[in-house]
């Protein structure tokens, strides 16, 4: 499954939001969850991967999920992506 989300955090996805995304993604052990942005695709379960995308406020990012609970994972990770955490 695939859906686009927009980053709302004014400072972009820095350490704290990236940690929150990674933790949420790891709540779905049997789903593959990827983030695709700017021509790069990384695992949402890796904080390093999420950070290296360098997503800023207003950027649109694709979340792609496969496996068990793919739909739930898509919504849950998407919601964290759109949360404002400073």
């Amino acid at each position: 499954m695939e859906k686009q989300f927009t980053i709302k955090n004014p400072q972009g996805i820095h350490a704290r939001p990236a940690g929150a995304i990674m933790k949420k993604a790891n709540e779905f052990p049997n789903a593959t969850i990827s983030l695709e942005f700017n021509g790069r695709k990384v695992s949402a379960k890796s904080i390093t991967g999420v950070l290296t995308l360098g997503m800023k406020a207003g950027d649109a990012v694709n979340v792609i999920t496969e496996g068990d609970q793919a739909a739930e994972a898509l919504d849950a990770v998407g919601a964290v992506l759109e949360t404002v955490l400073d």
Binding site: A15, R16, A18, G19, M22, V42, S43, S46, I47, T48, G49
Partner: peptide, 15 residues
């Protein structure tokens, strides 16, 4: 929390 992040980085497969 920055140090919590550092710990997560040290647990990360990608690193």
């Amino acid at each position: 929390e920055i140090f919590a992040t550092h710990i997560l980085v040290l647990q990360d497969e990608e690193f």
